[in-house]
Amino acid sequence: MSLVVNSTINGDPIEFSCEPDETLMDALRNRVGLKGVKEGCGTGDCGACSIRLDGALVCSCLVLGAEAEGRSVETVEGMSDGPKLHVLQSKFLEHAALQCGVCTPGFLIAAQALLEKNPTPTEEEIRYGLAGNLCRCTGYDKIVRAVQDAAKVMNKSSKRKKTSGGKK
């Protein structure tokens, strides 16, 4: 029997129904229509299905849809600010950090979570931080560079915000 689940998805209140043993990944893809959530393995190994659940970085293939009740979900579809791309998105493009792109939504979400936790990660910290995401095409180097560059830009703009805030 289907359950009705109410959650906040990318900032909007969304109601969807799903089977009790259906994963959040399947529910987001097939019930809500957020196909940016990718399935590479369905077993937590590839990270293509990465989302944020109440802010925590998780594999949506290892979460039940029912668990999203009353919680907030963020996916790649909610990353940009209207037509303005998130810095990470722009930097992935600029550094050619994607080829086939099927891993990209997961990497972007994981990188966003990483930079929130650690705004100035070293290369090693980025590699460890993104170890839960597999990419078959790029060889990772360009992804690491894109994240490093994005971190730089994000830190500059957050500093600017802070100093201009201080003046007021």
Partner: peptide
């Protein structure tokens, strides 16, 4: 254990 994603859960 696992990745950041796994540890989140």
């Amino acid at each position: 254990i696992g990745s950041d994603q796994i540890q989140g859960r």
